[in-house]
Design a protein around this nucleic acid. Structure first.
Lengths: 144, 144
DNA sequence: GGACCATGGTTCGTGCACGAACTATAATCC
DNA sequence: GGATTATAGTTCGTGCACGAACCATGGTCC
């Protein structure tokens, strides 16, 4: 990343700090096998009420499918989710959270809340609002 | 990373986009062996007028020393920098950019500029200012 | 001046993320 | 309906980043 002193560096550092905070929380709560990188997959699966094909996970989490393969394997290995083949299309594999996996919901929400709270600190709602909008703008700018 | 829809997710995505932009630029300019992750090391060395101990690089780039070891090896392998032992303290190794390495200055600056420019888009100077301040605040909040 | 601790670097093992190649199954097209 | 192409997932090799262990060497302390 160029722009060291600049805004890109700031953003990179914030991301790292946020990651570190999540890792700390997970550790403190004694949650094993989960790291910050699993967050998007977990978040997506927590929103589902029925099994979804892995393809849908890939689409949602903005990671390349080989990455998702590994993430899912890890989550499965630790008993947070279950995989099973589709009955109608032998190419597709469905995944769904196990009871243990769904049990993460509360921690997930609390950690998200803790992160946001610490990140924003005492920033006013107006400022938060504006900040998010500016970040939206930046995301848009960068993807053109 | 938890907080998918939230601000942390935004920040993570922006960072990735910024990284991707830098990688694209490097590729387009035919610069080989350099990736975005080398940026901080490069930036630091470009600011130096004489060789510095690796320790100083580690301090500057906020990466663990084993990471810096590898980064420096890569940069050396591609001829961008040179390592040599201290004469007074056999434990320390100095590094300095080669001519080829110093030749990256222009590209480095241009890429930084391009990144900032694309990232900010047409955001007003006032907004940019405020944004950077807010990010500063966030960095501070997260490191308490 | 020898035992002990501190410091600067490297090595090694692990995990995430990527892209390219591969496997297997489906869908299409003639 | 057989060849071709598209789709879903996995595997493999590579690079970054980390922490722990390790090697030298240098400083301290008695």
């Amino acid at each position: 990343m160029a722009d060291i002193g600049g805004i890109a560096g700031q953003i990179a550092r914030i991301r790292e700090q946020a990651n570190a905070l999540v890792e700390r929380e997970l550790h403190e709560r004694g949650i094993k096998g989960i790291v910050a990188a699993h967050g998007p997959v977990l978040a997506f699966l927590l929103r589902q009420s029925k099994p979804v094909p892995i393809k849908a996970v890939v689409k949602s989490v903005r990671r390349v499918k080989s990455t998702v393969t590994v993430t899912i394997r890890t989550l499965e290995k630790h008993g947070y989710l279950r995989k099973f083949p589709s009955e109608t299309d032998a190419r597709v594999t469905y995944v769904e959270l196990t009871t243990k996996g769904r049990g993460l919901r509360k921690d997930f929400e609390e950690i998200s809340r803790a992160l946001r709270s610490k990140l924003y600190g005492n920033m006013s709602p107006k400022d938060r609002e504006r900040l998010v909008q500016q970040l939206d703008k930046i995301e848009e700018n960068l993807s053109e």
